[in-house]
Design a binder for these strands. Structure first.
Lengths: 107, 107
DNA sequence: CAACTATTTTATAAAAAACTTTAAATATTT
DNA sequence: AAATATTTAAAGTTTTTTATAAAATAGTTG
């Protein structure tokens, strides 16, 4: 299927957003419930300020959305498929690549 | 599901590899057939040298493999699931995000 | 075999992008 | 104003990407 450069760029933007361990951890903690920033920080061990910057990236790409309650801001995945997409990637990782041999180098 | 930092790092490595428009284009051209470097270059418009650098990244992560024939080197996806994984990402992109509104900003 | 062509890779340096840290700033409620 | 929760700004570091030129590899020809 022929696609535009623009399409690949958009696609790459999203992939890039998943391309950081901390962001994947954040997404993972938000899979089952919404959480406020300090809670995400506690569960992932990411420092609040740095976390906030990663949350900004995620929100900028539309992967998470927010809800304010007083001074607290609750983050949630903006679409359940986001978690599913990562599951598929994981399954792909586990089965197709890592398993047969340690093909994923650069470790 | 609780996962190790190491796991997220590996996962992120693969996502990061998909996180560049040129590499997505390369993967796309290799979906149905293996191609030699010059052919990939013609079809994608990526300059040979730069292309070779991106192919190196893809091979380094185990996403493509090669076969030599004289001076030519043919590249192929190392696993058909790689294309499928991107399809799922595309479907996700098309349906879940882009469609409802233009959530993917930073354009 | 030496020279030559075709194909691909690599080395290097510069430019651009992403990430982290620290400190300061911004809401919001009490 | 003080306390809490979160974001932003700025500076510095690291990583990634690109462009250019040179090198490597394999095959061909005189």
């Amino acid at each position: 299927m022929e696609r535009s450069l623009r399409y690949y760029e958009l696609h790459a933007e999203v992939c890039k957003t998943f391309g950081h361990a901390k962001r994947l951890m954040v997404i993972s903690t938000l899979r089952d419930n919404e959480l406020m920033v300090t809670e995400i920080s506690e569960r992932t061990g990411i420092d609040i300020s740095n976390l906030s910057q990663h949350l900004h990236v995620l929100r900028d790409k539309g992967l998470v959305s927010t809800r304010r309650e007083g001074t607290k801001i609750y983050y949630q995945l903006s679409h359940p498929n986001i978690g599913k997409a990562l599951d598929l990637m994981s399954a792909f990782l586990d089965q197709s690549i890592s398993k047969s041999q340690d093909l994923i180098k650069k470790s």
